[in-house]
């Protein structure tokens, strides 16, 4: 099965607005000069130049935010799923309910897809940059790039290889197209050699890229 076979196109991306008055999607790549992203960049630079904005304070604030709201929630869910079969079943069948058990709630629909010996999952947003921010933090710049969005569907194995993930021919690569209607997160395979690890230990080895599908986890 190819990535295109499983691609989930045709979603409504209307909830992902980016243009100041419509248009654009706030991508970090090739930022259009009249986009909100460019406006924010210019404004931030001007505020710093005039001494109105303390970049260190801003960075501290952002770091605090990401410590609390980065991919830690996704990592916690993965670690819990690896150690609690009932939670895993709930995560795969009703991810919002599973995240709610961790105290994480959001109105966005999210589906968690499981890596197995037979299937490797990869997440992309082909139209813009839909991403479950609330469990995976900020999306990486490459996730929003036109190149990744196009190639992840067209040649997922080649893209994965560039991330250092070699998927054997006998293992299916399944590509999931996130949208404003539904966003995807990967439940990666638990690394061998972690049988004695605690849930906290396991959460610490989960990477953001593994939640997207562009990383394979290994025991520390």
């Amino acid at each position: 099965m190819t990535s295109a076979d499983d691609d989930q196109h045709g979603h409504d991306h209307g909830g992902e607005r980016g243009g100041e008055r419509g248009g654009g999607h706030g991508h970090g790549h090739a930022t259009p000069p009249d986009s909100p992203a460019a406006y924010v960049e210019r404004l931030e630079a001007e505020l710093v130049e005039r001494g109105l904005l303390d970049v260190r304070a801003l960075d501290d604030l952002m770091a605090t935010y990401f410590a609390e709201h980065g991919w830690v929630h996704g990592a916690r869910a993965v670690a819990r799923a690896w150690t609690d079969p009932e939670f895993k079943a709930l995560l795969l069948s009703d991810a919002p309910a599973a995240f709610a058990q961790l105290g994480v709630t959001n109105h966005d629909a999210i589906v968690v897809v499981e890596d197995t010996d037979e299937v490797h999952n990869l997440v992309v947003c082909t139209l813009c940059s839909c991403y479950p921010f609330w469990v995976m933090g900020l999306s990486p710049a490459w996730y929003r790039s036109l190149e990744y969005r196009a190639r992840a569907v067209r040649e997922p194995r080649a893209v994965l290889a560039e991330f250092g993930v070699d998927v054997p021919e006998g293992r299916t690569v399944r590509v999931w197209d996130s949208s404003s209607d539904v966003r995807y997160m990967v439940l990666p395979r638990r690394p061998t050699g972690t049988e004695a690890a605690t849930e906290d230990d396991l959460a610490a080895i989960v990477t953001r890229d593994a939640l997207i599908g562009t990383d394979v986890l290994e025991a520390p």
Binding site: G26, S35, E44, R144
Partner: peptide
């Protein structure tokens, strides 16, 4: 819940 990308996070942070 209102943050869906980097510029949104950045302006909120600012």
């Amino acid at each position: 819940e209102r943050l869906t990308g980097e510029w949104q996070a950045r302006i909120l942070g600012i």
